[in-house]
Design a protein around this nucleic acid. Structure first.
Lengths: 227, 227
DNA sequence: TCGTTCATTTCGAAG
DNA sequence: CTTCGAAGTGAACGA
């Protein structure tokens, strides 16, 4: 990884055009071909960047210009860095970084709900996870106590799009034999207001579930009036 | 901006839990409170990060541990960096970075189309941009040569979701007085195939427009057979 | 390659 | 403050 701190002007042309006026910035050249331009503010996002695969051209000694191009694209994507002054230029051999281990993404929620469908707010039996339709898989397909079918769409955050997605699935499932009355349930750690409204308007039930509570790591919020 | 290259292990807990095993990584501490953990591979995205506002704790001399916490949140967000070996630790005063100037985003396309609605493939008059409905604004509301209403949804890339969005708008507009026969047009720099199919199935017209051509920067592709 | 879906999405604007 | 939609979204996964 090469780290350059330099006063520079950066021009991007590709999917859009953008210009960064002359200022001091951090330029990161990763060994996988990634190129990032970071300012001292602006948070998470680089001001400019290019994802691999790229081709990098260096001009001048000391460095006066960097051109980063996207490889293997029809429309040219190009970053042009005009370097006015180099304040630092160091390279580090970093070896391999271990793979990140994540827990708490949508799939984890789906797994928990598959084993504890009662958390969905009614008594359900899980028939299948990833029930295939011709437009994609329904997260959980269940049956209720009266053997009625229930399709469950799971999200970490459910927006109006999640309602649309569930609606599309139901449209596809209902014509199947015996499926005409399949119900839809939207389950998420958070269901935003518009999604609630649209879901209710379409006769879909929504429910918020908490992964921590689900796992018993935290107690559900109980309002007890002892005595 | 402080740049630390160090062998370290990083633990995140918050919206999910994640662990990065011990490896050499770049740690970036921005003056706005941003904290980024980058590996030498993995492209655009940091392996771990925290956006402002944050509180950073330093432990040890030399540095042995960094704890970054999210400020002003109910649920705690926390990044814990256990530092095994520091390979480099430098700070740079970078001053202000100029604001980025972008051109070519959806809004630019909307502006061009508002002034040249003929590019939408039929003769239209623009009545309003950002025509308000109770579920959000229609990008362009127009009338055709027979005074019929036409709602235009504009995207840079139109997917199936853009068709759904336009459909929702039309559902809301049609009950309005005199609006029963409003037509829908989907305009984008690229309309993906499934969006085309769904649009056609729903009686919506779609059209691809090129911002460059629209501005006359490029000539449209003409196939001429002179003589 | 294209298309879909998820993301600790982030980011920005508007109510 | 929340809410909502765009993003050069990026990245993974499947057809």
């Amino acid at each position: 990884m090469r780290l350059i701190v330099a006063r520079c002007e950066v021009t991007y042309s590709g999917r859009l055009n953008a210009v960064l006026p002359e200022a001091v910035r951090l330029l990161i050249l990763k060994s996988d071909g990634s190129f990032l331009v970071h300012a001292d503010t602006g948070g998470f996002k680089p001001q400019n960047w290019m994802t691999p695969p790229t081709v990098v051209e260096h001009e001048g000694e000391p460095l006066e210009r960097l051109v980063v191009r996207k490889r293997g694209r029809k429309t040219e994507d190009r970053l042009d860095v005009r370097i006015v002054e180099i304040l630092s230029d160091v390279a580090h051999d970093m070896g391999e970084a271990g793979a990140i281990a994540k827990d708490g993404v949508e799939r984890d929620l789906q797994e928990e709900l598959a084993t504890r469908p009662a958390a969905l707010g009614e008594e359900l039996r899980v028939v299948r996870r990833e029930w295939q339709t011709d437009i994609g898989p329904v997260d959980l397909m269940c049956r209720d106590t009266e053997d009625g079918w229930v399709a469950v769409e799971i999200k970490r955050v459910a927006t109006i799009e999640a309602v649309e997605q569930l609606t599309r699935y139901l449209e596809r499932i209902r014509p199947e034999p015996g499926m005409a009355r399949v119900r839809g349930v939207l389950a998420a750690q958070k269901v935003v207001r518009q999604a609630r409204t649209l879901a209710e308007a379409r006769g879909l039930r929504w429910i918020e579930v908490d992964l921590g509570v689900l796992r018993g790591e935290r107690e559900p919020e109980l309002t007890l009036f002892p005595g």
